[in-house]
C-alpha cells in the first residue's frame, strides 16, 4: 500500500499546473526513494521529469514500487478542490485501479477525499545520462518567464547563446527582431536575484518558444531557474522544489537543415 502525506499540499497543485498542458497522461512512479514522473509531450519534442523525494513528505509509506497511470487533466481537477493551505495525502492499494487524494484543512476541521480512476499507460522511460554541460545559467525564474513571453510576441523561436559576456536570447519575426542580454551579476542582499553563468565553452542553440513558455508555468515553484546547455543536446530547464525535489524540462533543439 501507498500513503504519502505532503504538508505543503500547494506544491502538488503547482506541479500539476506546471505540467498538465504539456503532458496529457503520465505514470507516477512511487518507490522507496520518492514520487516521480517522466513523460513526453505528444510530439516527443519535450520531456518533463519530476522528483519529490520521500524525505520531503511528512509521512511516506510505499511498500512496493508502484506505477500509477493518471490523466493529468483529471488529476488537476481534483487537486483544484484542495485549499492552498491544505495537507494532501495520496493513498493507493497495491494492484488497485484507483488513487485517493485526501485534503485536510490546516485546523483539521475539514477533511475531504477524492477518488480518481487510474489508467493503463505504456511506460516508456528515456534513459538520460548524467552530463557535463558546456554552460549552466542560473537566473531569476520570473526574469526567464518574462523574456520568453516578450520574445514570443515577436517570433516563434529563440536562439539562446551563452558566452563570457552573458546569456543572449534572440528572436525575429515578421514585424522585426529582438535581443535580450543578461549579464552575470551578484546580488549581495538576495541570491534569488542573481544571474550566474558557468561556462566551459560558448553554446548557441535554437528552441521553439511555445515549449519554453509552457515550462515557465513552473515559475511559481521556485524563485530561480537553471538552464543547462551543451552543443547538440536538449536544454534542461530546471526548477528546484524547496526541500523536496525538482521539476526538469528537457527540450530538443531546432537544427539547421
Amino acid at each position: 500500500m501507498l500513503e504519502l502525506r505532503l504538508v505543503q499540499g500547494s506544491l502538488l497543485k503547482k506541479v500539476l499546473d506546471a505540467i498538465k498542458d504539456l503532458v496529457t497522461d503520465a505514470n507516477f512512479d512511487c518507490s522507496e526513494s520518492g514520487f516521480s514522473l517522466q513523460a513526453m509531450d505528444s510530439s516527443h519534442v519535450a520531456l518533463v521529469a519530476l522528483l519529490l523525494r520521500s524525505d520531503g513528505f511528512e509521512h511516506y509509506r510505499c511498500d512496493r514500487n508502484l506505477s500509477m497511470g493518471m490523466n493529468l487533466t483529471n488529476m488537476s481537477k481534483m487537486l483544484k478542490c484542495a485549499g492552498n493551505d491544505d495537507i494532501i495525502t495520496i493513498k493507493a492499494d497495491d494492484g488497485g485501479d484507483s488513487v485517493t487524494f485526501m485534503f485536510e484543512s490546516p485546523s483539521q476541521d475539514k477533511v475531504s477525499d477524492f477518488e480518481m480512476k487510474l489508467m493503463d499507460i505504456d511506460s516508456e522511460h528515456l534513459g538520460i545520462p548524467e552530463t557535463e554541460y558546456h554552460a549552466i545559467v542560473k537566473m531569476p525564474s520570473a526574469e526567464f518567464a518574462r523574456i520568453c513571453r516578450d520574445l514570443s510576441t515577436i517570433g516563434d523561436t529563440v536562439v539562446i547563446s551563452v558566452s563570457k559576456d552573458g546569456v543572449k536570447f534572440s528572436t525575429s519575426g515578421d514585424i522585426g527582431s529582438a535581443n535580450v542580454v543578461c549579464r552575470q551579476n551578484n546580488s549581495v542582499d538576495n541570491k534569488d536575484n542573481e544571474t550566474v553563468i558557468e561556462m566551459n565553452e560558448p553554446v548557441s542553440l535554437t528552441f521553439a518558444l511555445r515549449y519554453l513558455n509552457s515550462f515557465t508555468k513552473a515559475t511559481t515553484l521556485s524563485n530561480t531557474v537553471t538552464l543547462s546547455m551543451s552543443k547538440e543536446l536538449p536544454v534542461v530547464v530546471e526548477y528546484k522544489i524547496a526541500e523536496i525535489g525538482h521539476i526538469r524540462f528537457y527540450l530538443a533543439p531546432k537544427i539547421e537543415d
Binding site: S43, H44, V45, E124, G127, I128, L233, P234, A252, I255
Partner: peptide, 14 residues
Amino acid sequence: RETQTRMDSYYHFS
C-alpha cells in the same frame, strides 16, 4: 530552414 528534433534522437528508451 530549421528542423525540430525529437527527444528520442538524443536519448534512448530504457
